[in-house]
């Protein structure tokens, strides 16, 4: 059992068309089992097969869905209505199932702001396989230059809508099954440095590097705490900024430091509740 924060059960990328009916059967049981292990459980569903996919996965133990190949606001509205109906039928508090929208096409990225605010269920955005779907192939250098633009735009749109941007800054050919633990960690670190909060991975040995990469390091937290203490002392003495060597730390830097500390403590709390769940101790609802 991996230590992932979320287990995403895929009905789209890894399931051949002919196996989909059997994959949908018994999906609810899998969700329940996984949830007992402490991870949140999401299902990745197809934007064009919402009815069948949602009927298969919705149960009280499900946290939400990732909609792959999401194209339009209309699809979000469809998913929103279906989820509402299933919540009512299956004894789930109305409006609680989340949606993460995977924007893989130019149209979807163009409409990102509208999509992000199309439903109060939207809790996150990700680019999915945008570089493949949009034919943004790597250059001989291995870099996909336009991905940086798409990633940063997505992060800005997500920030603007108050939802979480998911993704990592991969470098070709690292992706999916090919990414070594080390390169996964690097992709997570780069991703965190530009504003992603977490990412998807497919192998067990990618989970820990992913978790580490997206958690502020002890060194960062130490630095942030020291900086904040010094800054606060300076402010109470009437100064507006502190100087350390040639660096100038002002109110903005103190906000950044607070963000690091808050993020680190949120990660610590989350790790503890996962450990508690694994050990069978009671865990408060998230």
């Amino acid at each position: 059992m991996s230590n992932a924060d979320v287990v995403l059960l895929d009905l789209v990328e890894f399931v051949p068309e002919k196996d989909k009916p059997s994959a949908r059967e018994g999906l609810g049981d899998v969700v329940r089992q996984l949830r007992e292990g402490g991870a949140e459980v999401f299902a990745q569903v197809d934007s064009e097969l919402l009815y069948a996919d949602l009927h298969a996965c919705v149960c009280p133990e499900l946290t939400g869905i990732v909609i792959a190949h999401l194209e339009s606001v209309a699809q979000i509205e469809e998913a929103d209505a279906l989820l509402g109906q299933l919540e009512d039928e299956r004894g789930i508090l109305h409006g609680t199932l989340e949606i993460v929208a995977s924007l893989e096409t130019a149209e979807a990225n163009q409409a990102a702001s509208q999509i992000a605010s199309a439903s109060s269920r939207i809790s996150g955005l990700t680019l999915g396989r945008a570089e493949l779907v949009m034919d943004l192939r790597p250059e001989p250098s291995g870099e996909i230059h336009l991905m940086q633009y798409l990633m940063q735009r997505l992060i800005t749109v997500a920030g603007s809508a108050g939802v979480t941007p998911y993704g990592a800054w991969w470098r070709a050919p690292d992706r999916g099954l090919l990414a070594t633990p080390e390169n996964t960690g690097q992709a997570a670190l780069r991703g965190r440095a530009i504003g992603f909060k977490g990412s998807f991975c497919v192998l067990d040995n990618q989970v820990e590097p992913m978790n580490q990469g997206f958690t502020p390091t002890a060194k960062e937290v130490d630095e942030a705490q020291n900086l904040l203490e010094e800054y606060r002392a300076a402010v109470s003495a009437g100064a507006a900024s502190i100087r350390r060597g040639d660096r100038i730390f002002d109110a903005g830097a103190s906000l950044q430091a607070q963000v690091v500390i808050n993020r680190a403590s949120a990660c610590a709390v989350h790790n503890k509740s996962k450990a508690d769940a694994k050990a069978g101790r009671p865990v408060p609802a998230p």
Partner: peptide, 21 residues
């Protein structure tokens, strides 16, 4: 500086988070 805090980034000199913005 405030934008970093607003989107929850601890900026690192190697990776510019604001090329787009």
């Amino acid at each position: 500086s405030d934008l970093s805090a607003s989107i929850g980034v601890n900026p690192s000199p190697e990776f510019d988070p604001f090329v787009y913005a």
